[in-house]
Design a protein around this nucleic acid. Structure first.
Lengths: 226, 226
DNA sequence: ATATTTCTTATTGTATACAAAATTTCTCCA
DNA sequence: TGGAGAAATTTTGTATACAATAAGAAATAT
């Protein structure tokens, strides 16, 4: 029997991925912002985006609204929605907050480490190394994202993981600037290696301290690049 | 994906409240949820809300979308948007995350303490004690909120303060249940006293540890009440 | 030339309409 | 009675239309 029921259950996406136009636009914009294609302070035109995505203003509006609620976009004091731009002072505060969240993630992850999360982190790191060695910036950005997400996921706590992810999305355009040369990528990948070591040591204090130093370094480089 | 949009209004720079219908609906719903008029797991009907607010579905939709992005509402796997409801397990995870954030806030606040923030915290605590002694539950809830916000503000970091605030909003309906008798209020106020002492000691490690123990106790009582 | 006012254009927010999908209700037959 | 299947109803997502308002341009007065 083909099973109408089977088809139905196959269509039941338990993963929560909505394929609506609004979500696709949201994801696309998020991607472009985090890669730096859309730059801070750039204005996002509703009708322009609608045309570009072959949709009407309605789903574009919903996407912009959600991204604004996430802090990736800001509603300009004049007219229009803009890619969030942060001053040095604001960046410093954001990184301070991020620093705390990431340290907490590292500590919790090191306490809860499972075989699965270990292997996910290692796999992501392998991708980072591969991308760094081939000097593929775009791919390194993706692998790097994946690497950090795998640590967040290893906490087993989706709430703190989500906070960490959002900070990462928010600072994406700024952090992206510090990856220019192949050496930048290699240095980052090497730094990941030490971090993994300390997280896998299962000494949570060491893991946390290591992440703090990783974040501090990342902040300094980000500041230099911005 | 659990909590969307934990980082929102930190970048709402000095904006006068937008008087748009969508914003008003958003605020009204947020208020009703935090006061418990709208209970967890309750479904929010777009057309019903539109009628109630004398508006069309469009602004209602935008409000629901934003609240969903903030994690106050969730998109049910079936149809419709619901007030977020958390299981014991989820509450535990949320409190774990909150615990980390609050500890970080306490530590940073104790490092940066200014005369102004000191006095704000003390004033809020005085209100708490007054409300507790008079056994006014509603007022204690407000004063308690104010007390914790004053600590967040004392960090000087609006980004981490916003995260902490949002967790507080999300858990509001659950935490509220543990304040029943006058003794509950007095006990909470007393606990605040110790916390203040440790934050004002300007030993950040002590402040952090004290907040952790405060949060742990709060969690235990919340679990008992839910 | 500059400042002020008016006209034009763009842009946002809201309303309404419509189509697709899914849930519910109804019907009919074993 | 029960269940498969069809019709009706809800509900969501998107498109389009329209009104209000702010930004920009043009025109006029000082």
């Amino acid at each position: 029997m083909t099973g109408r029921g089977m088809l139905k259950s196959a269509n039941n996406r338990a993963d929560g991925q909505r394929n609506s136009m609004a979500r696709r636009i949201e994801q696309a914009l998020l991607e472009e912002i985090s890669t730096g294609d859309l730059r801070p302070n750039q204005r996002l035109d509703e009708v322009g985006l609608a045309e570009r995505f072959g949709a009407s203003r309605t789903p574009v509006r919903e996407a912009l609204s959600r991204l604004t609620a996430q802090g990736v976009l800001v509603q300009g004091e004049r007219r229009g929605v803009f890619v969030a731009e942060y001053s040095r002072e604001e960046l410093s505060q954001i990184f301070e907050a991020m620093h705390e969240i990431e340290a907490a993630c590292a500590r919790i992850a090191s306490q809860r480490l499972t075989l699965l999360s270990r292997s996910e982190i290692e796999a992501a790191q392998a991708d980072c190394v591969a991308a760094a060695e081939s000097g593929d910036r775009q791919q390194y950005l993706r692998a790097n994202e994946s690497f950090h997400l795998s640590i967040y996921r290893a906490t087993g706590n989706p709430y703190i993981a989500e906070i960490a992810s959002e900070f990462r999305r928010r600072t994406g355009p700024f952090r992206a600037k510090k990856f220019e040369t192949r050496d930048d990528l290699l240095a980052s990948a090497r730094s990941h290696g030490e971090l993994i070591n300390d997280i896998f040591s299962e000494d949570s204090a060491t893991a946390s301290r290591s992440m703090r130093s990783h974040m501090t370094a990342s902040f300094l480089e980000t500041l230099k690049a911005n």
